[in-house]
Write a protein that binds this DNA or RNA. Structure first.
Lengths: 144, 144
DNA sequence: GTAATAGAGGATAAAAATGTCCTTTATTAA
DNA sequence: TTAATAAAGGACATTTTTATCCTCTATTAC
């Protein structure tokens, strides 16, 4: 559904959000461990998210990544769009560039319905809202 | 959503289905043109689908690919499973191997709902059912 | 049987995604 | 001001996906 890059991005964002609510910044090593992702790879992804304004960062000792109010309100859909583009939300299920209402592919209508479902679910899910469950260990971010 | 391989596979199957209903076999070149896919690549994919019993083939002059009754009834879900595996239908949205009801990822519940939607839609869509619209040019299989 | 045709299958190539390393720059504590 | 720390960024390596080529085998028409 999502690229691996995007999966890591979402997991990292949720983790950083939790730490940010607790008022602290997190370093890449801690993030990599917490979400069980390759350290250098997650570093690249966060660099990208940082440039795009989804996450804040500070260099040097006591530095690290954090989110302030605005990014906490961003939705999973925003992150997916930033990383994977909007192909998932607007693209044709069969990969046809010219698929449209006027010139639909065979699965166009039925596919559009689930595509919209996916979009709505991801749009409704805000990064900031996952912290409570994580905190109580009702949900998890690790691979294994 | 699907791999490119899988998109080509579905498009090819729908095209072959249409031709089969009309009683004829189709060669790889014709298929490649009709669905605007790389000829040698689609050949590989059909080889695979053929081994797995999703499509029939015959070598030599007047040979080609065709579907008989049973494959015409197969669903898009069957094809997706055969090509991409069932990750899309059963995997975690955040790529976590150990995500489960007992140990859910943050987006587990909401993701499961759309995953099920996708599965139901693909399970309901039978390869044989797309021919009429294709025939009447109400739907299309070409990229451009 | 022979020649032509068309899929099967092995091998290889190119491109994209994923993952790693190393140097530079900004920040902090002492 | 200096040393230590941590992200930024460029370069490179590996793996997976996508795409191509070539030879072999089965089938048909003659």
């Amino acid at each position: 559904m999502f690229s691996k890059t995007c999966e890591y991005a979402i997991r990292a964002m949720i983790f950083i959000a939790q730490k940010s609510k607790a008022g602290s910044r997190v370093g890449i090593k801690e993030i990599a461990k917490a979400i069980d992702a390759p350290e250098y790879f997650i570093a690249k992804i966060l660099q990208d998210l940082s440039r795009k304004g989804f996450v804040q960062s500070l260099k040097g000792p006591t530095g690290g990544f954090y989110l302030d109010e605005e990014p906490l309100q961003c939705s999973l859909a925003d992150i997916v769009k930033a990383i994977d583009g909007d192909r998932l939300f607007t693209g044709c299920g069969l990969g046809l560039k010219n698929c449209s209402e006027a010139r639909p592919c065979p699965i166009h209508d039925v596919f559009k319905a689930v595509r919209d479902d996916i979009y709505n679910m991801l749009e409704d899910a805000r990064i900031g809202e996952f912290s409570k469950h994580l905190e109580k260990s009702l949900t998890f971010l690790k691979r294994k």
